[in-house]
């Protein structure tokens, strides 16, 4: 065919670009991509490698066996230590204590479970905070209102 030289050149250029792209793409696909599905399988192992913040359920008993034993037979037995305190990771590193554990004495902490609410199942003891403290609406609740009477001993030990 005459006078089609430019068409052929354009076609060759296009095919070259296409081949370069298709072949080039192979060199940038991540290593473990497609091993177990259409994703980078190594991503799964990156998730596995993350540090735990909360300890095992019984980790606290390793050092605090007395409190743990007492608590286990008390009303707060189903409540894990870290619920009211903080994660083990804020307290222990490589099996050694490196910082004090947080002790939360605020009434808000108790209210999370024990404030009387419409719809809250009767699985837990509930009080209307204001009524219980004999406060009128709008009056501020003292920061440590609950633990003034219900101290740590009562919380950790069988009543």
């Amino acid at each position: 065919m005459e006078h089609t030289k430019h068409i052929w050149r354009a076609a060759i250029l296009l095919v070259t670009v296409l081949v370069v792209l298709v072949v080039g793409r192979h060199f940038v696909i991540p290593k473990s991509f497609g091993e177990m599905g259409y994703y980078r399988y190594d991503a799964l192992f990156e998730y596995m490698g993350k540090e735990m913040r909360h300890g095992s359920p019984n980790a606290c008993a390793d050092c605090h066996d007395e409190i743990a034993a007492a608590k286990a037979s008390g009303k707060h037995a189903p409540v894990k230590c870290e619920v009211c305190h903080d994660t083990l990771a804020t307290h222990v590193k490589d099996g050694e204590k490196y910082a004090d554990m947080r002790i939360n004495r605020s009434y808000e902490l108790c209210a999370y479970c024990h404030q009387k609410l419409v719809g809250r199942p009767a699985l837990v003891a509930q009080v209307d905070l204001l009524e219980h403290l004999e406060l009128s609406p709008g009056q501020p609740i003292p920061a440590e209102a609950c633990v003034q009477c219900h101290d740590a001993g009562m919380i950790h030990h069988p009543e």
Binding site: P57, E82, V83
Partner: peptide
């Protein structure tokens, strides 16, 4: 271990 939410659910 179990998830943080399951472990810390009191009920």
């Amino acid at each position: 271990e179990t998830t943080a939410c399951v472990q810390n659910c009191p009920t």
